[in-house]
Amino acid sequence: MQKILVRAFHLAHLMLRPMTLGVRVAAFDESGHLFLVRHTYVRGWHLPGGGVDPGETIEAAAHRELAEEGNLSAQAPLRLVSLHHNAAMSRRDHVAFYACDRVSQSASKKPDREIAEAGFFPLDALPEGLTSGTKRRLDEWAGRAEPDPLW
């Protein structure tokens, strides 16, 4: 009976207060260039990433999003850099920020319904239109800013 009550409590909590979780990855090629994407449905250049699916680990989601958004595979371990509340998305959205020092690309990412444009950029020549969240994460990663708990 206790197990049933606990499961019912968790189910009610999930339905009444769902939390969403996403992931973004600062992915670098062997030359140290950063991979960025420009989506079809939102403005600006972003780090590759997206939502964590039910039953999926955050790291597995990061690997999946690298593959989906850039035909990328990690050739070095992904490192969790920080966690952030994404209040602009919802009161219950959080984003895990990872970095990978070495990724390889099996083929250039062709535009599709989700990705308008994607590519690797030198850190001193990032494209115009970089989102503010992406700028802040890169500054934190580089040690130019203290981590901000908000995305």
Rank of each mutant, 00 (worst) to 15 (best):
L34N: 08
L34R: 12
L36M: 11
V37P: 06
V37M: 08
V37E: 09
R38H: 12
R38G: 01
R38D: 03
H39K: 11
T40G: 04
Y41I: 07
Y41P: 00
V42E: 11
R43G: 01
G44Q: 05
W45H: 07
W45L: 06
W45I: 03
H46M: 06
L47W: 01
P48Y: 01
G49V: 04
G49N: 02
G50Y: 08
G50P: 01
G50F: 08
G51V: 05
G51P: 00
V52A: 04
V52T: 02
V52N: 02
D53T: 02
P54F: 10
G55K: 03
E56R: 07
E56G: 06
T57C: 00
I58N: 02
E59A: 04
A60H: 03
A60P: 01
A61E: 00
A61T: 00
A61W: 00
A61D: 00
A62I: 02
A62G: 04
H63W: 02
H63S: 02
H63E: 06
R64V: 04
L66Q: 06
L66I: 08
E68F: 04
E69G: 07
E69T: 00
E69H: 03
G70Y: 03
G70W: 00
S73E: 10
S73F: 11
S73T: 10
S73G: 07
A74V: 08
Q75K: 14
Q75V: 07
P77L: 08
P77N: 09
L78K: 10
L78G: 09
L78S: 05
L78E: 04
R79Q: 11
R79T: 14
L80P: 06
V81I: 15
S82D: 13
S82T: 11
H84P: 03
H84N: 12
N86V: 03
N86Q: 14
A87P: 08
A87R: 15
A88W: 12
A88F: 11
M89T: 10
S90H: 11
S90I: 07
S90P: 04
R91W: 09
R92C: 08
D93Q: 14
D93H: 15
H94I: 08
F97M: 12
Y98P: 13
Y98M: 15
Y98D: 14
Y98N: 12
R102W: 13
R102L: 14
R102C: 14
V103G: 11
S104R: 14
S104N: 12
S104P: 03
Q105W: 02
Q105V: 05
Q105Y: 04
Q105M: 10
S106Y: 09
A107R: 15
S108G: 12
K109N: 05
K109Y: 00
K110T: 10
K110L: 09
K110N: 07
P111D: 11
P111H: 08
P111Q: 12
D112P: 05
